[in-house]
Write a protein that binds this DNA or RNA. Structure first.
Lengths: 106, 106
DNA sequence: TTATCATCGTTCACCAATTGAACATGGTCA
DNA sequence: TGACCATGTTCAATTGGTGAACGATGATAA
């Protein structure tokens, strides 16, 4: 399934590196090839990414996965949402660590 | 499957509250009854917990899940390891947040 | 006592998510 | 041309998790 986390990560990776095989993408995200393929297709389906056959990069086979305007906008939104979530996690983690420290002492 | 996280959490919950049904334990950990049962059995199998029939608590049915000496020791180790991991996560999160902030600015 | 009820631990058929081997396609090079 | 390699696609198989259902046991009421 395509969570916000993977949506964000895929958009981020492809924005900075559009010529990226699904295998390499999968490796970077720590997921399987099948899942990478599934998520990527979902993003293409929703119009966030366009798979371009025109290859002017070193790798002539495969696609160029380009973010559409909608995809770029989506990535901004996701980044902000992600930042908020991470800040919340950060604070929760602070509490948890303090609790663990108390536990270790006892 | 029984991860360090659940091992730690189960030992923690049962140490402070040995008369705890598997259903209640599952609820506290946010997992299903089946998984709680599986994890608990694994801990009993490995000798970290002993299921005691002698019930002197309010709830006369079910078991008392008592930590064995080995279980107590294991919990200490797990707590320390957990603390270290959480500190690492905390610092990683700090970096990630900073990165996200930069990204939002651009 | 007997019947009923509630709660417990246990089981396991079912579902969803993930995996990666296998395949088809197309570009590259000798 | 033919052999080769990297790519995207597919899908059977595995894994992990779920919670309804079941049998057992103690509490309660008749």
């Amino acid at each position: 399934m395509l969570t916000d986390e993977y949506r964000y990560k895929i958009l981020k990776e492809l924005q900075q590196d559009p010529d990226l095989s699904q295998r390499e993408l999968a490796k970077r995200l720590g997921i399987s090839l099948g899942k990478a393929n599934f998520c990527l297709k979902a993003l293409i389906e929703k119009g966030s990414i366009k798979a371009d056959n025109f290859k002017n990069s070193a790798n002539k086979t495969g696609y160029l996965y380009l973010l559409t305007p909608k995809g770029i906008e989506e990535k901004v939104t996701l980044t902000q949402r992600f930042l908020q979530r991470k800040i919340a996690e950060y604070e929760a983690l602070e509490q948890e660590i303090e609790q663990l420290r108390r536990e270790v002492k006892a």
